[in-house]
Design a protein around this nucleic acid. Structure first.
Lengths: 357, 357
DNA sequence: TCTGGCACTCGTAATTATTGAGTGCTAACG
DNA sequence: CGTTAGCACTCAATAATTACGAGTGCCAGA
């Protein structure tokens, strides 16, 4: 029977766990590969560098560590980070000051749109990473109201308030002229009739209505339908939105200190589609999500990590908030930050909903 | 009497002008310092390198050229670029394709807000520089209309359309409840009464009205005034906006290929206040404006140049459009581009105004 | 099982050598 | 007198060399 148990299936022995934790933590704070000497000097182990080397060699065999090159210390792998986050990390929770800052921002902004924008730059500032707020396509969510405002003759502004509190404007150029009175009636009718429906549904119902018998004879109803269809027709204004704030924060990260990786990283953040795809799949699961390096296409290529969480109640429309940064980031601080912010947003949205009803 | 005339006051002699033009053009397209050999090889001069060296030495004495170091070719100074732009540059005008592209974008977007945003990214794409669109503080401009829409109980959305066609939303939480009917009346009253006034003026007049005798007895007027004041009270939503699009375009410019200058440049673009100050002073003068390097605080520090022009008719609200890039940019192409786009925007705004009246 | 010792690896930094583009000056030429 | 060929000189950039040292793996002894 071999001395060493089957390491791939069993948990790491306590000493190895401590060593791994220490390496990850030190590497997160210094950014440098960690050698056996440095590790011995930290004082948490009553072991010589040589013994630590043995442990480290084991951890490397198991895929938790790797060496950039032969004569360098060790660096955690994706798997190492993953193990750290799942089993070793002890997050300190959020400082009261930070909580207050978040609460303050979220409370004070009145428009949902602003709140989301603020949230993303707040995240960026507090984390010193790239802050991320994703709001999916509005089409799939219910609306709260739809109003029409006369801007100029034959120019009407549709003001649609989504159930998530986001306001979308859309300027419509009409063939027919509408009076303020008519618009007032139409607004009231549509809001009463369709509040709580998704835009997609509204559109289908409006189209169905054009074919109905009684519509043919009701002039004002015809105009209503025409205008309503115009309002929900072009999907462009309702597309998802992705706020990425604080891209410049990566300028200070040592892993992006050379021109090439800076270039690559900025270009990567530019391609929002891929990120949107990723976030859309993330929307399905609740709870804090951490994606490390190779765990998704997007993060793999660029060696990013993403810490994100869904916001919004399960009944209300949802989105994602989070941060993007290098794999080497302070997960212990990021996790509670993202977590708390997403809860604050969710609370805000729920309050809005209650207020409305 | 010395052979050479007083060179600082008199125009350059024709040969020197040709040499300067050629150097600037070659340097713009290659980015490298230009030596006498390279210059001789271009074929436009029937002169030996040695003779060209003499001319170049003169141009250097006059401050139009400089040498990065002793054993390098020459590079234009700010003054060299300035002379080039004022006297030597022959801009080719815009290609029909480019004109069409601009016209298309500007025509098709319906909301002024979008137009401005699009304009800035269009500029960025077409110029491969950073596109810039500046919309000054809305407070100083007249409004076209102001409408109030009921969003939830005690939550009202003010929809203000500026004379420049820009729409601003503002969510107001009121103490009193408003009915849809009331809001309709109030919207009508305010729009009729105050269309054409600046927000600042409206605010002052509303405040004056609170003190007037007859207001005390008119309940609905009181509510109107209260709501109106709320709408124009907090200036934040009316602040200037500055769209900077395509910051990543500088990633490809050789002058920013090292990490340090990349860093510096991104941080510089982040500080929008300084740029806003600069653009605000630019607003005063009409016509295409080119700021080179040392000619303004902002451009001096970062070795940028700015090509910009005012948009909007003289009667209508104004803003600036333009591009920011390294001093070494194709002015001959940028000038007509910015010029044409600003005219297209102005035309659009004037059309809107006519339509409205 | 742990530890000190030792030979070995290999990236980084510093040093030096080499190259070549470009200049200014001078003297000769038409 | 303007133009040009020739030449010595400068100096950044590149390449080659060297030195250094942090870190490793392995082995033998406690």
């Amino acid at each position: 029977m071999p001395q060493r148990p089957d390491l791939s299936s069993i948990e790491l022995d306590p000493r190895a766990r401590e060593v791994l934790r220490e390496i990850v933590m030190q590497h997160i704070s210094s950014g440098e590969p960690i050698g056996s000497r440095t590790l011995a000097k930290c004082g948490r182990f009553q072991l010589s560098p040589a013994s630590l080397r043995n442990v480290m060699a084991d951890l490397e065999d198991l895929g938790y560590l790797q060496q950039p090159h032969t004569s360098a210390g060790r660096v955690p792998t994706d798997r190492g980070y993953r193990f750290f986050i799942d089993h070793l990390m002890q997050s300190r929770g959020l400082s009261p000051r930070d909580r207050e800052a978040i609460d303050h921002e979220v409370e004070h902004a009145s428009e949902m749109d602003h709140v989301l924008h603020l949230a993303s730059s707040l995240l960026s500032k507090m984390s010193d990473q790239v802050g991320l707020v994703f709001m999916p396509n509005l089409l799939q969510f219910a609306i709260r109201s739809m109003d029409f405002v006369l801007v100029a003759e034959k120019k009407i502004m549709a003001v649609i308030v989504g159930a998530n509190g986001v306001v979308v404007n859309k300027l419509i150029e009409t063939r027919l002229a509408f009076s303020r009175d008519e618009l007032e009636k139409i607004s009231r009718y549509i809001t009463v009739e369709f509040a709580g429906c998704t835009l997609e549904l509204i559109r289908r119902r409006l189209i169905r209505m054009t074919e109905q018998e009684r519509t043919q004879h009701d002039h004002i109803l015809q105009k209503t339908i025409a205008l309503g269809i115009e309002a929900v027709d072009d999907v462009a204004p309702f597309e998802h939105e992705l706020y990425l704030e604080g891209a410049t924060s990566i300028l200070n990260k040592p892993e992006f200190s050379d021109a090439v990786s800076l270039r690559r990283t900025f270009l990567a953040l530019q391609e929002k589609e891929k990120l949107v795809d990723l976030l859309e799949t993330c929307l399905r699961s609740d709870g804090l999500q951490v994606l490390i390096g190779s765990e998704s296409d997007f993060t793999q290529i660029h060696n990013f990590s993403i810490v994100a969480r869904r916001y919004g109640s399960s009944t209300a429309p949802l989105g994602m908030v989070g941060i993007i940064g290098p794999m080497r980031m302070e997960y212990a601080r990021m996790a509670p930050l993202v977590d708390y912010l997403s809860r604050a947003l969710s609370r805000k949205i729920e309050e809005e909903q209650e207020q409305e009803s």
